[in-house]
Simulated scan of single mutants.
Amino acid sequence: MKAHLGLHNRIVAAFVLVFLAAAPAFAQTAKLDDLFSRLKSADEGESKRISQEIWTEWSKSGSPAMDLLLERGRNAMAQGHPEIAIEHLTALIDHDPDFPEGWNARATAYYQTGNLGPAIADIGHVLTLNPRHYGALAGLGAIFEELEKPKEALEVYKAALAINPHAEGVEDAIKRIETKLQGKDL
């Protein structure tokens, strides 16, 4: 009986550890759900604040070491060194491949270096892990525009706008592409 009790205690302890480790993710999801709900009906001023809160939540990996790699990658990009950013962000992804913002930041760095294929691949990872990532969708739209694929760009821009009705620059991009496509039909 003692052997069964010891095994039971270890199983319960393992479940508690798994639950505690996952609790921040559940809390983050609930908070994000609330923010996205509020974003749908927010005015333009409030939407900027809510969007910033969403990005803040997205940037939390749950690990100080991973957060530091993300910060170093972002700082390298801000200083005009996307190649160095790619190194930091690749290390982040290697250690935490389930953290969407690592993939998103590296996609941005790849885009800055003109490596559109790897940028698109990383955006695919972001959207698999976080389908509501309107920033990744907007980035994909910009890449499709650059590749002169206006119909694909329009589709992903509209998807980004459906998630965040105030996503910066997206409404203008949609109007620009729709005008361009109407001109081709005439």
Rank of each mutant, 00 (worst) to 15 (best):
Q52C: 01
V12D: 06
D94R: 13
F36K: 04
P24H: 05
R74S: 12
S37I: 02
P82T: 07
S41I: 09
L70P: 00
I50K: 03
S59N: 14
N75F: 09
E87M: 05
I93M: 08
F19V: 12
T90R: 04
A25M: 08
T29L: 08
H81K: 14
L89V: 04
R72Q: 15
G80I: 06
A107C: 08
G62H: 04
H88E: 10
D33N: 15
R74K: 15
S59Q: 11
E101M: 12
S59L: 10
P100S: 13
D43Q: 04
T29C: 01
G73N: 04
A105D: 01
G73M: 03
V18K: 05
F36M: 08
H88W: 07
K31H: 12
T90K: 07
G73L: 06
H88Y: 14
G102C: 08
A105L: 06
F36E: 06
S63N: 10
F15A: 10
S59E: 11
N75W: 06
L70S: 00
R72F: 07
S41E: 13
A42N: 06
A13C: 08
R38K: 14
H88F: 11
E57C: 11
A107F: 04
L92Q: 05
G62N: 04
S47N: 06
K31E: 13
I11F: 13
A109E: 00
V16Y: 09
A105Q: 10
S41C: 01
F99W: 15
M66L: 15
W58T: 03
V12T: 13
L89A: 04
A78E: 15
L89W: 04
V16T: 12
P100K: 05
H95T: 10
F36C: 07
S61R: 02
W55V: 11
